[in-house]
Design a protein around this nucleic acid. Structure first.
Length: 201
DNA sequence: CCACGGATTGGCT
DNA sequence: GCCAATCCGTGGA
């Protein structure tokens, strides 16, 4: 895959909803130990400090969520349920408190390494491939992303996002978000219509 | 200091 | 479909 078309900082420094839509179809990439892991972004959710009680940033800045206030272009990693990590792309301006949760990827490169990270074996069947990165915690497990990666700048050379053609609105499905108990009616989940790697319809 | 529960997953029924 | 696993951020005393 061509590696010279990284998304620039200004891509991330815009409105969280347009950026969420724009992230669909792009390639999330991690270089680790000389290898490339990558996946096409097929499902995301927007979170924002304002009017969104489910957002980690809703009650203001804390040590845990401070990356959400650093402005667009950083990776915000949080730990949940005592065993899982999830990855967010921070968007907008300084102190805006906006981020996009990566909910599902279509695995593209480094499937053998992802399979080791997820299943402790390098050869997998079609069902296992389907389940490799189709959930927010599965993505972090497959890409070996943990607390260390919190605050990583996405324009660096370790973790970044490659540009790809924009997905047209016709091909984007918009729904309420999954797995939350507050602000459950906000239609802030975006996914690529008919992509088999989307976590849930 | 302590209690609560979560932007989840996978295994078992 | 249901539920256990397992940590730590958060908020109240």
């Amino acid at each position: 895959m061509e590696m010279n078309n990284k998304l620039p900082l200004k891509f991330f420094q815009k409105d969280v909803h347009s950026t969420a839509r724009n992230l669909l179809g792009k390639y999330f990439v991690r270089k680790i130990k000389g290898k490339i892991l990558s996946g096409k972004i097929v499902e995301v959710e927007a979170y924002h400090k304002n009017n969104d009680e489910s957002s980690h940033s809703f009650n203001g800045k804390t040590k845990r969520n401070e990356i959400m206030f650093w402005g667009g272009g950083y990776l915000y990693i949080y730990f949940t349920y005592g065993m899982h990590f999830c990855a967010n792309v921070v968007t907008g301006k300084l102190n805006e408190g906006a981020a996009i949760l990566l909910r599902s990827l279509e695995p593209i490169e480094g499937l053998d390494i992802m399979a080791m990270n997820r299943y402790n074996k390098s050869i997998i069947n079609e069902i296992e491939k389907r389940n490799l990165t189709n959930g927010p915690a599965k993505i972090c497990r497959a890409f070996d992303i943990k607390r260390n990666e919190n605050g990583t700048l996405l324009t660096g050379d370790k973790i970044f996002i490659l540009n790809a053609p924009k997905i047209s609105s016709n091909n984007i499905e918009v729904t309420t978000r999954i797995g939350i108990k507050k602000s459950i009616d906000l239609p802030w989940r975006y996914y690529i219509k008919d992509n088999p790697f989307v976590s849930k319809k």
